[in-house]
């Protein structure tokens, strides 16, 4: 009687396990390829040069392999993006979760989420041909390619990531906790900032870190609007290049497999991978540290 059913259950279980195994294997494969090529790269370029040289010119005749200029580019655009996305995303989340009526929320939330669905190439050209000229009217010294404009546009793109996840976390705060705040004579703003926000802290921080990961990994916007010029600087007004933009730049060219130029992509990619990996770990630790238990 129960034999066929058990057999079906078993098949489903094995099927699910194989799917899970597949994604693990793919991940391991990617890391493996990254590692393999990166090791090849470091056979030619000393690690110390990679970490301390202040120039990145693998495609020129006078070659330098210092990752710092690319990292400074990524750091710059990410910081600008987060300076936009954090406050705007958090304020939107507070508004949506604590102030907006249910009707307003059901309309506004999907609209906001559309921002995340726009292809990044569109954002890239938006930054290049709309935002940059606009900024140039206010900032005379701004180059046609710069970190500021794509940073801001990237921030706009990331707003829904921050607001949506933060809002979910704030929405999950038990109503009883908010009532406790109101019963002590809190205003809405006080309940939002001093009861709801601290209670949703781990979720809000996760949304921040996810936003940062997104900014670090973003490629198209910076490749189009930031200039493809590796430069060790924190000046947002001049052309720069990010790690991701460099990878796409080389991939689009006709660099032969196995050459040192080709391997630079993997070294850069490996650095990027390590960076986002660390961010994920930080996010995990913070979530664990600040998770509040509600039954």
């Amino acid at each position: 009687m129960t034999k066929p059913r058990q057999w079906i259950e078993r098949t489903i279980e094995v099927g699910l396990f194989l799917s899970a195994l597949l994604s693990v294997l793919v991940t391991l494969g990617i890391v493996g390829v990254l590692l393999f090529e990166t090791v090849g790269f470091f056979k030619t370029v000393p690690l110390l040069d990679f970490l301390t040289d202040t120039e990145w010119t693998p495609l020129f005749s006078e070659k330098h392999y210092g990752i710092l200029p690319l990292f400074s580019g990524t750091f710059l655009t990410t910081s600008i993006a987060m300076a936009v996305a954090l406050p705007v995303g958090l304020i939107s989340a507070i508004y949506l979760s604590e102030y907006a009526s249910r009707r307003v929320r059901t309309i506004l939330k999907p609209i906001l989420e559309i921002l995340a669905a726009i292809p990044t190439v569109v954002y890239g050209y938006f930054a290049l041909i709309f935002v940059t000229p606009l900024l140039q009217k206010v900032i005379p010294g701004l180059s046609g390619f710069n970190a500021l404009s794509p940073g801001i546009v990237m921030g706009i793109m990331i707003v829904p990531i921050v607001s949506s996840l933060s809002e979910d976390a704030m929405h999950a705060v038990p109503a009883g906790l908010k009532e406790g705040g109101y019963a002590l004579g809190s205003t809405r703003l006080q309940v939002a900032t001093q009861v709801v926000l601290p209670a949703a802290f781990s979720g809000v921080v996760s949304s921040f870190i996810l936003g940062i990961s997104r900014a670090v990994g973003e490629t198209m916007i910076v490749a189009i609007a930031a200039g493809l010029q590796p430069r060790l600087t924190l000046n947002p007004l001049v052309p720069i290049e990010t790690v991701t933009a460099y990878i796409v730049q080389v991939s689009m060219g006709d660099t032969p497999t196995g050459t040192i130029e080709y391997q630079t992509i993997f070294a850069a990619g490996m650095s990027l991978f390590l960076l986002t990996f660390v961010l994920n770990i930080v996010s995990y630790l913070l979530r664990k540290r600040f998770r509040e238990v509600y039954d």
Partner: peptide, 27 residues
């Protein structure tokens, strides 16, 4: 503020014991 309330399910804030009691004063 003049008419306080205590609820069915205890609802302390996810803060320290001290900060829970100080909350109403801080605001």
């Amino acid at each position: 503020q003049r008419i306080g309330m205590v609820f069915q399910k205890p609802n302390p804030f996810p803060k320290s014991i001290y900060e829970n009691v100080a909350y109403g004063l801080r605001i």
